[in-house]
Design a protein around this nucleic acid. Sequence first.
RNA 1: UGGGGUGUCGCCAAGUUGGUAAGGCACAAGGUUUUGAUCCUUGCAUGCGCAGGUUCGAGUCCUGCCACCCCAGCCA
Length: 557
Amino acid sequence: MDDDRENYPVNFIRHIMERDVASSKNGGSIVTRFPPEPNGFLHIGHAKAICLSFGLAKEFGGKTNLRFDDTNPLKESVEFVNAIKADISWLGFEWDEERYASDYFDELYDLAESLIKNKKAYVDSLDAKDIRKYRGTLTEVGRDSPFRDRSIEENLLLFRRMKAGEFADGEQVLRLKIDMASPNMNMRDPTIYRIRHASHHQTGDKWCIYPLYDYTHCLSDSLEGITHSLCDLSFEDHRPLYDWVLDELCMVSHPQQIEFSRLNLQYTLMSKRKIKQLVDLSIVDGWDDPRLPTIAGLRRRGYTPRSIRDFCRRIGVTKSDNNVELAVLESCIRNDLDRNAPRVMGIMNPLKIVIKNLPKDCVEVLDAPNHPKDEMMGHRKLHFTREIFIDRDDFREEANRKYKRLVAGAEVRLRYGYVIRAEEVIKDNNDHILELRCTYDPDTLGKNPEGRKVRGVIHWVSATEGLKAQIRLFEPLFNIDNPDLSEVDNLGVVNPDSIKVYEGVVEESLSAAVIGQSFQFEREGYFCIDSKLSAPEKLVFNRVVSLRDSWAKIEKN
RNA sequence: UGGGGUGUCGCCAAGUUGGUAAGGCACAAGGUUUUGAUCCUUGCAUGCGCAGGUUCGAGUCCUGCCACCCCAGCCA
């Protein structure tokens, strides 16, 4: 994985693994797994889990399986399976084996029968509503189902009939017989099989009963010889059940479940269910909308795998609630792209400039390095012509000395080019500036004029040689830092200005740009070609992130 | 008023068996600079949810509080 030299920083899970390896638990080996349900796209919260499970295993010379937790055919599809695989690979991780919980359906079924035979499971004929009633509440104990004490024979028969398709959906379930009075709701005879006459993306129509998570997950882990099963804090309450199932079934391999807190990122939503809502309601343009924290969205936005891995490393792993600032993510991508992105010039709000003392058909070729500190990145040609564009923000009719750009009657340097002076401001009847007439000083290429100090340097693009391009800027999708709201409410906190589109111009060298490449538009930020919307005739750029902007801070005060 | 967790700088987060609070991001002030970028330097918790206690010494041990998060799917 190229240049992530650093190992994962210290965290409590690593300490556990270090201890286990030192004491030769599990023969000193580390085997982890990443278990996504293929019912949506992966997001950066999953990236945290991926970096952890894959990263730690790799560090200890262990293995990591990719296992699809595909026990709910109603919500899952191969499209999601493929998207998930693509995202993990793109992030830079390789799984040892590709598995599916559905690979174990036969074994799971046999194990369930043995549970029945040991009087540890029973078929309940209560409907969902009644099961809920009998379960009790957080403060009241539950009551036993009237079907709890059926004979082994009856249970076996019923369970086999469930499997054979003799019942309709919801008519019967198989439950574990644990303790309806347990203070832990998960232990109140959890359901482990339900009837679903639905075809499954992996097993087709072979089954009409499907096992549930609590029963499936621990056994899948065990069957695969997982040593450390990492998951988020919401499963902490499920650990007694995880252990109960493995113990009752006398499984040889008993993985250790370890929970850590899930990632929360400010101004964004980190729930697959809620992201799906945004997609379904067309609030965003699909799962890979650049404003989404999905891996696909981040990729389209221009985030690199390396920057995401760096982010996961920086945020750490604990059990405490967190709400990480966007600034951390932005720092990671700036850090990567500053080193690796070639520099170019692009204008979002073009303002035309005519260089009066340059002949009409003159095209002077200028040389520009692609990176200020990395000669290896080479050089490119720029074309200096009589008509050029600068950004409207880089000109003011009057300004104090703090303003280091072009001011009427004063000088500024064109990046990699000459010093120009603004001589005339051409306006329309509404006082709107149409263009600027300037002169350039031919004696200032690569050297400063004598006796005068130039205010600053601005970027520019040839009006005749440059390329038109659409430039898209993004802001957070939400205007509050923890948009953890109910489905109805969250529409009220959607930022209406989360995307801004500009019709701009970029330098001609960008005609060779391809999807996946990132550039720094000097003085503006980092940009990449939009993988969906851009075409050779009509370039579309997404801004990954702006450059740090201390001028904006100064100007505010 | 059930059970399970968590509380160290604005946001993350290190803190081995108690020995006198890492680091990152952000922020601030300087320096370099043909990107107001990068880079470099410096600063940034007498205090670790609160209150007591033990101890020569406590973020680390004890007691009691408080706050926040998760759990009542035939979702994962």
